[in-house]
């Protein structure tokens, strides 16, 4: 019996250390579940090189601006963005490919929540960074505002874009007309962009991402890519109803 107790004690002590090493700096009660659900319980190192920029308080719960900035982190394969306390947790899943691994976008928040970037590097390891955003909330259950405009369907998936080049890099900013309905407003089914990519003139993807309901209506993105000169970039994608996005952004 004593042995069992000692073993239990040892196990508890070990569990304690493991937990301490992985302790969530944002101290969110959701984190252990999310780690299990999205990372299959893979170990995660919270890394100061992963910065999530967002306002401390969401002034507009339908449009909370987020920038993920990764400084000096080599070989990033994947950036998964989640919001712990949103009814739909996953925001986007980004594969930078040729692009820099940081990006900017806006999300809807239903209540105060951490917003996290989970970053996978080429060796398969996961790193994370994040920030708490306070919010009056309600961002996910309100109907999109554009639906009340008579011509919203004509504008669906239209892309506005602009490129800033400096010889080495180019910043691409995009706005895509889409209601990004979460399915949580009564009588309005989920209707959102699911896939997006920027491709070069040969049709090869320079970056791609999967996107989910919490992204704001008419989503705006900023990406940083290597400068490709005077060649027009193509933005391609589709929403969950099969509507295509296909547009050229002239440099």
């Amino acid at each position: 019996m004593k042995k069992v107790i000692a073993a239990l004690g040892l196990a508890l002590a070990l569990a304690g250390t493991v937990q301490a090493a992985d302790a969530d700096p944002l101290n969110s009660s959701r984190w252990p579940d999310l780690q299990r659900e999205y990372l299959n319980d893979a170990p995660v190192a919270f890394d100061p090189r992963i910065e999530v920029l967002a306002p401390k308080v969401a002034e507009d719960s339908m449009n909370v601006p987020v920038t993920v900035r990764l400084k000096g982190l080599p070989d990033v394969k994947r950036v998964l963005v989640i919001a712990d306390f949103n009814p739909i947790v996953k925001v986007l899943d980004f594969q930078p490919l040729l692009a820099q691994p940081g990006l900017s976008f806006r999300i809807k928040l239903q209540q105060a929540s951490p917003i996290r970037a989970l970053v996978q590097t080429g060796d398969g390891n996961w790193l994370a960074g994040g920030v708490w955003v306070d919010a009056a909330g309600g961002g996910c259950t309100a109907p999109s505002t554009g639906r009340s405009a008579p011509d919203w369907a004509q504008k669906l998936n239209q892309v506005q874009g602009r490129v800033w080049r400096d010889g080495q890099n180019q910043r691409v900013r995009l706005r895509i007309m889409h209601p990004m309905d979460t399915g949580l407003a009564p009588g309005i089914p989920a209707f959102f962009i699911e896939q997006l990519a920027i491709v070069d003139d040969k049709g090869d993807a320079m970056l791609k991402l999967e996107t989910f309901e919490p992204l704001s209506e008419n989503p705006v993105f900023s990406f940083d890519l290597p400068d490709t000169g005077a060649v027009a970039l193509r933005v391609v994608g589709r929403d969950n109803n099969g509507n295509r996005i296909d547009a050229k952004v002239q440099p």
């Binding site: 874009g161 193509r234 547009a247």
Partner: peptide
């Protein structure tokens, strides 16, 4: 963002 990209 005034330059509206051309849909192809």
């Amino acid at each position: 963002l005034d330059s509206v990209a051309l849909p192809v």
